[in-house]
Amino acid sequence: MLKDRHPALVAAFWMTGALFSFMAMAVSGRELSQDLTTFQILFFRSLIGVLLIGALVARSGWAQLKTNRAGGHLMRNIAHFGGQYGWFYGLAFIPLAEVIAIEFTTPIWTALLAWMVLGERLTLPRLTALVFGISGLLLILRPGMGSLHPAALAVLAGAVGYAISYIQTKSLSASETPLCILFYMTMMQLPFGLVPSLMDWKTPELNSLPWILLVAVTAMSAHYCMARAFKLADATVVVPMDFMRLPLIAVVGYLFYEEVIDLPVALGAGLMLAGNLINIRAEQRKAPLRTEALKAPRSPE
């Protein structure tokens, strides 16, 4: 039984589910891009998501959906929708491994935004991660070398959108439940995808329906599995496993689409991963110090 296992081992089990979910979502997104527009993919993803999240909310209670922060939800979902659009658009035109590698710049933009918006400190490890991350990004994109595909810029813009949504999620989580945030995500993003889809509507073929179902279900299962993993283990255990997405998706791209990951992409991704790991290790070392500080007796005022 999983409950009798070490928490880190159970977290690894959940992260395995997340990794397979992300890979399945990438493949289904690539397959659907041959017949549907990116807006249609996002519309169907949200439509099925509304049904899935609605069922979960019905079991846990509708009262949690009451909110005074509609503006915050709207801001988060505009940014998140932009992030998703860039990611799925990129899947149609550039190698899967390159999409994932560029997506790994999200922590860079999140750290910058947290510094500018939330006032969080830019410590030396965080600055190191930023320098490594930007250097890795330049290796992958190779500006001025004549090999920059517009879809790569779309994925990069999507990574910035994800970073904005993460900052807004951190703010919303102080008063909203995770299901509340997910419910408004699917409800708000449903018309975001529907309206532009109607302008260039393509009725899905019957053989596209399994891919539509897969992209929607794996979108939810990936984030659910990651949330369960983070609840059981520290970031130093979970995040390095998430980095496995890059080599795994490179294998998937090679096997299914005959994609070969080139050396600059591999080196750039390695730099970004190294920077993230340096930052994570530094944050982990600071955690015991914070715990000891909380335990220390306070002098009377």
Rank of each mutant, 00 (worst) to 15 (best):
V160K: 03
T123W: 05
G253Y: 09
V160P: 05
K66R: 14
A111G: 07
A152W: 06
Q40R: 04
L214E: 05
M220F: 12
I261A: 14
K3W: 14
L172N: 05
A216K: 04
A26S: 15
R228K: 14
L52D: 09
G17E: 07
W201F: 14
A222C: 09
E205G: 14
V57M: 06
W115F: 15
L74N: 00
V50S: 08
A296F: 06
P178R: 06
P288V: 00
L127N: 07
G144R: 06
F81D: 01
Y184M: 02
S175F: 04
A12M: 08
W201Q: 01
V131P: 03
V260T: 15
H6N: 11
R285Y: 10
T177Q: 12
A114C: 11
L214A: 15
L209S: 00
A287R: 13
A229H: 08
N279E: 09
S173L: 10
G119F: 02
V265M: 07
V160Y: 04
P264I: 03
G17N: 08
I140S: 07
T128L: 15
A235Y: 09
T38W: 02
T203M: 12
L19W: 01
L213G: 15
L52S: 03
A159W: 05
A293L: 10
F132S: 07
A157S: 13
D4L: 05
L113D: 11
I102G: 13
M145Y: 11
I134R: 00
R281K: 09
F20S: 14
T169Y: 03
Q34I: 03
E283M: 02
I212H: 04
G72E: 04
E176T: 00
S147P: 05
K3D: 15
L153T: 02
V237M: 12
G49M: 00
Y184R: 08
R126T: 11
A70V: 13
I94L: 13
L138N: 08
P297Q: 02
N279A: 14
V27H: 04
T105C: 10
K286V: 02
I181A: 00
W211M: 12
M116I: 15
E283V: 00
H223S: 09
Y166T: 06
A282H: 02
I181L: 05
H223W: 11
M220Q: 15
S171A: 14
A92C: 06
V260F: 12
F20E: 03
N77I: 04
I249D: 13
E258W: 05
E283S: 13
L273A: 14
S171Q: 13
L294F: 02
N279C: 10
F43Q: 02
E283I: 04
F192R: 02
L36P: 02
M23T: 10
F93P: 03
G61K: 03
I140L: 04
M15R: 01
D4T: 13
R285E: 15
V27A: 12
M185G: 04
M187P: 01
A63M: 05
W109I: 07
Y166N: 10
E292W: 01
P204A: 01
A79V: 03
P150K: 10
M199Y: 10
M272V: 06
M23W: 04
F88G: 08
G82W: 08
W109T: 00
M1T: 11
P297M: 00
T105L: 09
